[in-house]
Design a binder for these strands. Sequence first.
DNA 1: CCGGTGAGTTGGATTTTCAAACCCTCTTGT
DNA 2: ACAAGAGGGTTTGAAAATCCAACTCACCGG
Lengths: 160, 160
Amino acid sequence: MKASPRPCSIADTLALVGEKYALLVLREVSLGVYRFDRIARNTGAPRDILTARLKRLVEAGILEKVPYNERPPRYEYRATEAGAELQPVLVTLMAWGDRHLNADARPVVLEHDCGEVLSPRLVCAHCGGEADRGSLSHHVRSPGWTTTGPVETAAGGGEA
Amino acid sequence: MKASPRPCSIADTLALVGEKYALLVLREVSLGVYRFDRIARNTGAPRDILTARLKRLVEAGILEKVPYNERPPRYEYRATEAGAELQPVLVTLMAWGDRHLNADARPVVLEHDCGEVLSPRLVCAHCGGEADRGSLSHHVRSPGWTTTGPVETAAGGGEA
DNA sequence: CCGGTGAGTTGGATTTTCAAACCCTCTTGT
DNA sequence: ACAAGAGGGTTTGAAAATCCAACTCACCGG
């Protein structure tokens, strides 16, 4: 019995993309910047760290190497389908920063198909209603865990 | 001319919540776990790191300390309005992990008001249409930057 | 041949993380 | 009263990650 953290998809996802620069690499790729040197410059990541991140993201199936030159072998890093599905994470992070940190001058603006500047909104795919703090409830399905913490293994299962 | 990284709200936001455990702390708070010890156990964060993260998140206006006991002074950490607005980031991270890492057994399930299990979808607040890779375009508004990189200060501004 | 570009690799200094122990202030049990 | 325990940290030193500059290797252009 040694204090393992809560099982959670957020933690699992962050284990792949939560290291420093990983999401910035994804940002660059989603902006169309696919090559090592330019990703390094645009993110500010040291080159050795970038090497490690790219390797990890490729292994995780988030990026893939696409050759663009033989002799010497050179690759571009492009998002896989799984990688592209991380875009909502980037968009919501950006929206938060735009609102709370850069309210007066957003460095990058996203434009939606409809012609408007994107204000992203998270909704329920079933009913289309907003999915925010007030409209969501959590159900923990991991054995041994409740919403607030691990189940005490005897001697008074209740919470403080 | 010393290679500064791209100005970007994603990077700015990650500077606040991108350090290890920061988003897991927010996850716990959004699950209703407000106290030091329990957050430490549920996230697995070492206590000294947790102290540092909580301090930073409070300073950033994402969490606030609410006293629940004097003598000795004890506080709960609760999300501010700004902190609550990070929920979409947590939800999209969780959705990705649920799909790509825990497809067979989601550790936590979110239920929406409408009675269904939440499938989050990111849409444009204006037109209501899906906001994904295909329907978005980027416009870089930082002086000296284009979509793919910094503007070369002379001698041929083009890209490789 | 010389300089330059792209994509790394290597070595060593600096920061962070980590784990365990310690501290202080109450509260509870006997 | 006294010992034990809970809650919320701080301290200490070892282990890991990050940073940065320099170096390599393969090619290209002149």
